[in-house]
Nucleic acid binder design. Structure first.
Lengths: 204, 204
DNA sequence: AGCACTTTGGACTTGCCGGTCCATTTCTGG
DNA sequence: CCAGAAATGGACCGGCAAGTCCAAAGTGCT
């Protein structure tokens, strides 16, 4: 049932996932029932179980994957070519803007907390997301190094890990406080350190 | 009922909170029922509602407060006197050790996600925890400044916000990946930057 | 058109779990 | 030792939400 036989089926499945993602963002996993999803997506109970035979968990997992894909996509094209200070700045702005708009809705955090226990799949999704995210940050740092904008002595692995951690923490703090100060601080602090590790030329 | 009339009552209430905290860590909020808590704490249903008349939410909130108090307490006495590089190092080790031991059990994160929607109280607890935590980090940085170990030009507010974000993110990444690399990276990176902002003397 | 398969509708079942209630026991103060 | 309050035990209730099932409608292929 992963890929439905007919086009109509595939469309319905996609509609369910997308609609479910919306409901989940608004209400949180805990307070979302299959009936809510049914109502939002204009489907019947049997459809839900037709496309997700293993029930709610399977659907939640599909939504988690859907959201995870969006996280990186939303940062493109900037995340993909972090080879100048200007591109880093733009990327930073996109990240801040995206998460501020999202506000206190945490599509992934809560999802994997719920599903994580029962299905190991959820952890894998998040872990893979983190891996790719960090890899792209590391690529960007190496691009700066290649351009002579950052010291070759910089420990790229560690710096990218720290930056990723800062983002995650910034976002999760924003979830509880509604304030993006920490996210901004983490991003700016890390980027500024990259700058400091260069010579002082090209401070744009 | 906040503070029970008799000593026995107070003891029971405390036993419930503590036991509930244990169950919640192990199973997560979603999969924990009042019966689980009842079993663990050797109490009866009526006791639960006797001490927490508003039901599960009230109990969850009490546990959240209990856990929040522990977070800072576990970092003492180091967090309280971050006035030398040595004390920062010790504190860093304590944080890493504490969260590695905790592993993938997230006492607070999941709690406030659940309760946060229904009761605003949970957010307040987390927000207050973050405030105090960051304040103590900022104090530590100012102590370093006072001792001439760190440049007076350092933006303490931003640096402490970034550090806190890094810790939070490091911990939450560890929740999904089981790996403390990011937490360590965030701590070490931030502390190293503090060092770099000083003159180079006293690099112990 | 006709057959097989997919998709859809929605009533129904089932079990769980938060919450209620009252009876009983244990404390405490005088 | 006694009254009144606090603490405890546990049976019971009611609602909700996940999951089942079968019949009906649509779809595509020959």
């Amino acid at each position: 049932m992963r890929d439905a036989p007919t086009a109509k089926g595939r469309a319905t499945r996609a509609r369910i996932v997308e609609g479910a993602a919306g409901v989940l963002r608004e209400q949180g996993v805990t307070f979302t029932t299959l009936d809510d999803i049914r109502a939002r997506t204009g489907t019947s109970k049997s459809q839900l179980f037709h496309y997700f035979p293993e029930g709610k968990d399977e659907l939640l997992l599909a939504v988690a994957q859907f959201e995870a894909d969006r996280v990186l996509a939303d940062q493109q094209p900037h995340l993909g070519c972090l080879d100048s200070w200007e591109s880093w700045r733009k990327w930073r702005d996109v990240v801040v803007e995206r998460y501020e708009r999202q506000g206190d809705q945490c599509p992934l955090g809560s999802l994997f907390l719920q599903v994580g226990r029962s299905r190991t799949g959820a952890r894998a999704i998040v872990a893979e997301l983190m891996r790719q995210w960090q890899a792209q940050l590391a690529d960007g740092m190496r691009a700066l190094q290649a351009g002579g904008l950052v010291s070759p002595a910089l420990d790229v692995e560690r710096a990218s890990a720290a930056l990723l951690a800062g983002i995650q923490g910034g976002v999760s703090i924003m979830m509880s406080t509604g304030d993006s100060t920490h996210l901004r601080a983490a991003l700016d602090d890390c980027i500024e350190r990259l700058r400091a590790s260069a010579g002082d030329r090209d401070r744009t």
